[in-house]
C-alpha cells in the first residue's frame, strides 16, 4: 500500500507537485490514510477550530460545531445544518439579462437569458464564489451532495461519530418555513 508525505499532498492540492510525483500518485494503489491526512491539511488552512467531519468542496466543510453538524466556509462563515442545501444560506447574484451576462460573456459568446440564468453563490464572509449554476428559470438549486455521514464513519472508516442523525434531505422543510 502506498504512503505519501503530507507535504506532497499539500503540493498536489496547490497544483505545484511535479508531474512525475503526481503520476506516481495516480498510478499507485491508494494510501489508506489519505482522508485523515487531507482533513489535517485542511484543518490547518481554515479560520475556525471546529473539527472537520468532511471536506464538502475545497472551500466548504461539514464541521462539528458544539455537536451540531453544520457547513462552514474556510473563512468560518456558517451555512447551517448540512442536510439543508447550503446554498439557501449563501448570498446569490443572478445574471439573467444581457447586461449582467455581458460582464462575463461578450459578443457571440453570450448565452440567451431566456434560456438560461447564471447563478453565482457567494460566501457572505469572504466573498468567495462557491458555485456557479447555469440553469433555466424554474430549476431549484442543485444540492450536489448529501453525505450519509454516519454510514461513512461507522461502516467505511470503522469509527462511529459520537451521535447519529437521520440521513435525510431537509431542504424542502426549510423552504416550507419561508
Amino acid at each position: 500500500m502506498a504512503s505519501f508525505d503530507k507535504a506532497d499532498i499539500e503540493k498536489l492540492i496547490d497544483g505545484v507537485l511535479p508531474w512525475p510525483a503526481t503520476q506516481d500518485m495516480l498510478k499507485s494503489s491508494k494510501d489508506e490514510d489519505r482522508f485523515d491526512k487531507y482533513v489535517e491539511i485542511m484543518q490547518a488552512r481554515v479560520d475556525f477550530d471546529d473539527p472537520i467531519l468532511l471536506p464538502l468542496t475545497p472551500q466548504l466543510f461539514i464541521v462539528s460545531d458544539n455537536g451540531e453538524r453544520v457547513v462552514k466556509c474556510k473563512c468560518g462563515q456558517s451555512f447551517g445544518d448540512y442536510r439543508v442545501n447550503w446554498k439557501l444560506s449563501a448570498l446569490i447574484y443572478v445574471r439573467d439579462d444581457e447586461q449582467k451576462m455581458g460582464e462575463v460573456y461578450v459578443g457571440r459568446e453570450m448565452p440567451d437569458p431566456a434560456w438560461l440564468q447564471l447563478r453565482e453563490y457567494i460566501c457572505g464572509g469572504c466573498g468567495t464564489q462557491l458555485e456557479v449554476e447555469a440553469v433555466p428559470r424554474g430549476c431549484p438549486p442543485d444540492f450536489e451532495f448529501l453525505p450519509d455521514l454516519d454510514t461513512f464513519y461507522s461502516e467505511w472508516l470503522g469509527r462511529p461519530l459520537p451521535d447519529t442523525v437521520a440521513f435525510e434531505d431537509k431542504t424542502l422543510d426549510e423552504v416550507g418555513k419561508w
Binding site: 440553469v135 450536489e144 451532495f145 448529501l146 453525505p147 450519509d148 461513512f152 461502516e155 467505511w156 440521513f167
Partner: peptide, 8 residues
C-alpha cells in the same frame, strides 16, 4: 463517500 449526489 456514501450519500446522494444530484446534478442538473
Amino acid at each position: 463517500v456514501p450519500g446522494r449526489i444530484r446534478k442538473s
